[in-house]
Design a protein around this nucleic acid. Structure first.
Length: 420
DNA sequence: TCTGGGGTCCTAGGACCC
DNA sequence: TCTGGGGTCCTAGGACCC
């Protein structure tokens, strides 16, 4: 048996943890750059504010109903997510962290009669220890556990246990295709065209037929809907294959120097993340997008990539290459809205192939990066490459809009909430 | 006028190998 | 006149997830 634990309106719930005055007020959280709504509390959804809608389209609703608005505060959400996951592990030690707000748990050792009680314990403990509401779906496959969770949320029961086929069979008949994990927009259209309109019809399909007409992924899903597990708990996430860092700018950027700084900054962030995971990159890509969206002023190319002579995790080498690519992409007079960098062809550092003449240089670079990382993690200050410029993020012309940012309640001493 | 930022997996087809 | 069988690697495109 698997449990899928999913936090309710996670980002909005995080904003409420240290703001009990918001308990009954609608809350929405915006994307980076305050562009669109990425999360809304139940009250906000009831007002018709959908996830993904641009902010300017719901301004009136927000004003009229006194909706509390927040910029994304990933520092806060990431920290609360970690707390949720460690809390879950106190009741079910095998946890697969599936996303920032979801985890699969292995409940194979739990007797059927105790599943319901355990589900309720999970909810209560996370609510008490972290302050975030969660729902729990329990079933013999991950796909069914996902769906059970969906119903736990929708019915308001909080916990749904599907231990036997009769528990889910009736429900599948009422389930729209798009509610099933792994069925997106395109698949809904293709299935509908074939006369398949709900979860029960999907589950009734023959494995081989699905395998032939769709792919092995959908064929497995059909088996999972019948209670036959094809997916297992992944306790150790496989090493990442690529690291992307990209941001929209708060305002369009025309000149090259600020773009160089942004590319330096993004590359440094991505490289730091890569080093934390013990990997090297073999290749770097950069792309540029003009602003505003949907009005392409730039034709081709808008992205470039190049292999490194030797795989590296040295910010200096990666940033130098990324800036070269940027300079090839940039055209005078265009207004740019976004730049992104991607590190690909990642491989474990211990498998690194040494260059014939580069050994000592590489070792020096590694030592330098290690020192930089340890200073930056010490909490006492930061060091960076001069190419990034000396302004703080907020002062840069390329920085993103974050008009409604909440404090870093749990990760910055000066932002600790006061209790009176 | 104003619209995010990450990721993964699968398949088909082409090129090439023995 | 007759013309095999078994592979790998790469890329583009399509699909999905949060």
């Amino acid at each position: 048996m698997f449990a899928l634990v999913d936090c309710n309106s996670f980002y909005a719930s995080c904003e409420r943890v240290f703001r009990p005055d918001l308990r009954d007020r609608p809350v929405v959280v915006l994307s980076n750059n305050d562009g669109c709504v990425v999360a809304g509390s139940a009250e906000a959804k009831a007002l018709g504010i959908r996830t993904g809608v641009p902010l300017f389209q719901v301004r009136d609703l927000i004003r009229k109903h006194d909706v509390a608005v927040f910029s994304s505060n990933y520092t806060l959400y990431g920290d609360l997510s970690r707390r949720v996951m460690t809390t879950l592990a106190t009741l079910a030690p095998k946890v697969e962290v599936y996303s920032i707000d979801e985890a699969f748990l292995d409940l194979s050792m739990v007797p059927e009669a105790q599943l319901q009680v355990l589900g309720e314990q999970l909810r209560e403990r996370v609510a008490r220890w972290v302050g975030v509401p969660v729902c729990v779906g329990i079933a013999p496959t991950k796909t069914l556990a996902k769906l059970a969770n969906h119903y736990a949320k929708r019915l308001g029961s909080g916990v749904e246990v599907w231990a036997r086929p009769e528990d889910w069979q009736a429900v599948l008949g009422q389930t729209p295709l798009g509610d099933i994990w792994g069925v997106g927009r395109r698949l809904v259209a293709r299935l509908e065209a074939l006369g398949i309109h709900n979860g029960a019809a999907l589950a009734a399909l023959e494995y081989d037929w699905v395998r032939r007409h769709f792919s092995v992924v959908q064929a497995r899903m059909v088996r999972e809907l019948n209670g036959e597990p094809c997916l297992t708990l992944e306790l150790q996430p496989p090493p990442r294959q690529q690291i992307i860092h990209s941001r929209s700018f708060g305002q369009p950027v025309v000149s090259l120097p600020p773009l160089r700084q942004a590319v330096n900054d993004y590359t440094a962030r991505a490289a730091e993340k890569m080093r934390m995971e013990g990997q090297l990159a073999g290749s770097v890509s950069v792309w540029l997008r003009t602003a505003p969206m949907g009005k392409p002023q730039q034709l081709w190319p808008d992205s470039l990539s190049r292999d490194l002579p030797q795989a590296s995790a040295d910010t200096r080498e990666l940033a130098r290459l990324a800036v070269q690519l940027l300079e090839q992409l940039w055209k005078p007079g265009l207004r740019y809205g976004k730049v992104g960098i991607m590190l690909t062809d990642l491989r474990p550092a211990e498998h690194a192939q040494g260059g014939l003449f580069e050994a000592s240089k590489t070792r020096q670079g590694e030592a330098l990066m290690a020192v930089m990382d340890s200073i930056n993690r010490s909490g006492k200050g930061r060091v960076w490459l001069a190419g990034r410029g000396v302004k703080t993020r907020q002062e840069c012309v390329w920085s993103m809009r974050r008009e409604y940012l909440s404090p870093a309640y749990t990760t910055r001493v000066s932002d600790l909430p006061r209790v009176s």
